[in-house]
Amino acid sequence: MSPPHVLVLTCDDDPHADHVRRLLDRRGARTTVFDNRDYLLRAHVELAYTARGLARRLLHTESGTLDLDSLTALWWRRPGWPEAHPAITDPSVAEYAVREGVHLISDLWEHLTCRMVPARESVFQRAEHKPSQLTLAAELGFEIPETLIATQADALWDFHNRHDGRIVTKTLGLPRVENLAAGHTVIRKCDFVSARDLAYAEALRFCPVIVQEYVPKRLELRVTVVGRRVFAAEIHSQDSNRAMVDWRRYDLGGTPHLVHRLPDEVAERCLAMTDRLGLSYGAFDLVLTPDDRYVFLEINPNGQWLWIEELTGLPISEAVCDLLLEGA
């Protein structure tokens, strides 16, 4: 019997994928790493059909040829986007080539018959939509922050006044803005709305944003669901001025991380939400308030976990391996 074969879609610099690959190797599994960015540059896809249907699906790379129908699992981690070959000098032709490349490569991964983690691309991309997450979370019994998503200044001012100014904003989707001309990237975190922000409220009409009441925190929780297993870690973000509003402004030396005993009903809601979203993996961000209420903020279908594992000892990576090899 052939060993399990896992295809990992990710970029070059991915410590999470590197760590899991080492664990899979120890278990005797075969792993292949591919970045969508290399398609059109250094890799080729071959799809062949007969009158009866699909005959073969092959991925040719510099390291060899992979029969995609031999895979037992595909792990969609963090691949890039296809790029035009540098031999194409016309920008409009290059853009067309990339669009066609994305069309093919996305459809290719979508229709493989092996296990998909966290899900098929179309499924986990839909699961990333924060408005839908909030609706589903409330439906499943989670408490959620009072939230406004709008492009009208008056709505923002009314929301600000109703909550005595204790409101925060965050992005609907991408947390970063890349200015290629200037050569820098701006990372957008969760932030309080300041008086200066209100002065520019009319600019809200150009781009939607999520506005939420600020939820008082005793602890923040990162709850990682892997298959049917739930790993909860508490992040003592209020111990650090830097991480107090958004723990992603990492201050690991000043922010204790500990294993958290999650109430059974909260764990069940997390499992129910991943089920409803069609995910086999999900990283939840919750708040535990000073009066012991668990408040849902969001779920990330491809959220990071390695720092949690290193600081708490929770065996999340081994669980990811179990998930990738399940049924192989």
Rank of each mutant, 00 (worst) to 15 (best):
L306G: 06
F124T: 00
E265D: 12
G253A: 13
M244P: 00
P15V: 07
P4M: 08
R52V: 03
E95A: 15
S317T: 07
H260E: 07
V123Y: 05
T10M: 01
F231P: 01
H44P: 02
A17D: 06
D264F: 10
H111R: 15
G28R: 02
T65F: 13
L174T: 11
L323S: 13
R176T: 15
N241L: 15
L140A: 04
S194L: 07
P301V: 05
M244Y: 08
K170Q: 04
Q125Y: 07
P131K: 14
N302P: 00
E139I: 06
M1G: 15
D35H: 10
Y250F: 14
T65M: 14
G173D: 15
R196A: 13
D35F: 04
I149D: 04
V193I: 07
N300F: 03
C207D: 09
A182Y: 05
V168T: 03
E100M: 10
I316F: 07
R30E: 12
V193M: 00
D197V: 02
V223G: 01
S280R: 15
V226G: 05
L288H: 03
N161E: 14
D239C: 11
L112A: 05
L136H: 07
L58C: 10
T185M: 13
C11N: 15
T61E: 08
A138W: 04
L277E: 00
M244C: 15
V245C: 05
A94G: 11
E146I: 12
L286A: 09
N300K: 08
L258H: 14
P79N: 04
L23K: 15
P216M: 07
I308S: 05
L66Y: 12
T312Y: 11
A127P: 00
F34L: 03
T61H: 04
A195L: 13
F34D: 00
R269Y: 08
I308L: 11
E220A: 05
T50L: 01
E121K: 09
K130M: 02
T289K: 08
L9P: 00
A138G: 14
V117N: 01
L172A: 05
D25A: 14
I235N: 01
E128N: 07
A55V: 09
A29T: 03
R99V: 06
T10L: 02
S317G: 15
I316L: 10
H184V: 05
W109Y: 11
R261T: 08
I308M: 08
S132K: 13
P256Q: 01
G327D: 10
I88R: 06
W307K: 04
V93G: 06
E100D: 14
L140G: 04
C114G: 06
Y294D: 06
L23R: 13
A48Q: 15
K217D: 08
T50Q: 01
I105F: 09
